[in-house]
Simulated scan of single mutants.
Amino acid sequence: MDTIYTLDARDHIMLEVMADYFKLDHSAIYREINGMFQELLLVLKSKSINYQELRACLSPSIEKKEIMLVFDSFQIDSSWYGGEVFKKILPLLDRRTSHSFLCGDYIDKGLDQDRLYHELVSSIELRNPTEYGHSSQYFLVYINNVSENLLKQIDDGLKSYIPYTGYVDVTFSCFMKRYASVSLVNSFIKHKNIVICGHEDDRDNSENINMPGYAFEENSYRCYSLQASLVGIFLSYKIERPVYDGFKRDTEFAINSISSNVLAIDGFDVEIDDSKLNYLRKHKTGRMKKSELISFSRAELEGLIREKIGDNYLYNLTHLKEHATTKFNILIEKLVSNGPPVRLMVALEYIPNERKLRLITMV
């Protein structure tokens, strides 16, 4: 089975509606998800796009940054300020890299303006003057998988554009990252010199439409599109946040994509073999020291992973039939005594019959 890098049933409700309306059991849902995934692979292949190359923009990185660019729409002389913003951003991107873009206005979402003002001004790297009138005047562009060099390239390139207010580093958990996760909408994927976006479900997948309308072609990007249901489920990056009540079925559907035996993993035991722990201490010394896990006992490390299980999204979902192994990754953000948190990618084997998750690796 091909690895499914991400599956979004958090913001895209098609799977939940389908499962409830037709009263599908886990076996039927497993077939439906994998049937749609195979369709996705075929559509991408027909457009000469290799799904396996999209991993960097669909699952989180432990090394790269996540940033949110902030633009003051009051200083843009166009009602379609998003189009003007991307005329400035697109020429600054690296043709060798891949990123997911999510966009939206800084609307209040039930929060008061004092809170929104405070959170923005306390976290932004300010680049140009702005007069805060209301949060909704700011247009936000989230980009994942950003290197330090690319951040500098984008930031330097936008400094002379007066509506560019600045950027917020949302690599680690913070208010602005959580806000982005509930407010911003997946817009498109930039993969090297192509753009991938969604189009209407009643439009044939053989067509390619620039639905966002941004200046892709003018910047020599080839724009490919496919039906929004496929894009929404399999090509939508999920910004990390705690798994709130009401969204736990996202994890259920993720597991159901690789197994028809679906159980709630937040109650599972975590198992780390002695040989695995010794391997981590011997061969992953730098990461173990940096995360302050080098002195953790097996029981302490198992407890840490078990504590984080229910609060994380699942990525890199795989069933290896030849090895009878079902596995997935979670991203753990480990607080340390000095410096920023350390991100760890943890690969776990799903063993439902024993209600157990076995550690495969941690990097």
Rank of each mutant, 00 (worst) to 15 (best):
N208T: 13
T130W: 15
V170P: 11
V342I: 10
T318A: 07
G157M: 05
R298W: 02
S48L: 07
S206K: 13
N210Q: 08
R10L: 15
D8I: 00
R343D: 02
Y221T: 04
S291E: 05
L357F: 06
H323A: 12
R249M: 13
N34V: 06
V70R: 04
E16T: 14
Y106C: 03
V270W: 07
E16Y: 14
I154R: 11
G82I: 01
R95F: 04
W80V: 07
L277F: 10
D114A: 15
R358V: 05
G198I: 09
S122L: 06
L42K: 14
D202H: 13
M14V: 14
E292F: 01
C223K: 04
D245C: 05
E63C: 06
E240V: 01
V195K: 12
D108T: 12
N353E: 00
L42H: 13
A264S: 10
G213D: 06
N316C: 06
R241F: 00
I107G: 12
P163L: 10
V170F: 04
P60R: 01
R287D: 08
I143F: 13
D202C: 15
S79G: 09
S181G: 11
D273Q: 10
K152F: 07
E63H: 08
E252P: 04
E119N: 11
V185R: 15
G82M: 10
R343E: 02
I360N: 05
N186I: 03
H323P: 03
V43M: 03
I76G: 01
K276Y: 05
F328Y: 05
I62G: 07
D77R: 11
S73M: 10
L54A: 03
Q113L: 12
I305T: 04
V243E: 01
D273T: 09
E333V: 02
E84Q: 11
T3S: 10
D105W: 09
K308T: 07
V270M: 02
R355Y: 00
D202Q: 12
L69I: 03
L7R: 00
H118N: 14
L158V: 01
G104S: 03
P242I: 03
H12A: 13
L92Q: 04
V141G: 07
Y142C: 08
L335S: 12
N205M: 06
Y279V: 00
H323F: 08
I239M: 11
L120I: 01
I196G: 07
A264D: 07
V182A: 11
N144C: 11
E200F: 07
L280T: 04
L54M: 10
L58M: 05
L41C: 08
I330R: 02
G166V: 13
F216A: 08
V182L: 14
E217Q: 08
Y142H: 11
S275E: 11
K65D: 01
E217M: 01
N312D: 04
D156F: 14
R358Y: 01
E302H: 06
N50Q: 14
L304T: 00
S160H: 15
F234V: 01
I360P: 06
L102T: 09
S236K: 09
V168F: 10
L158R: 03
V121M: 15
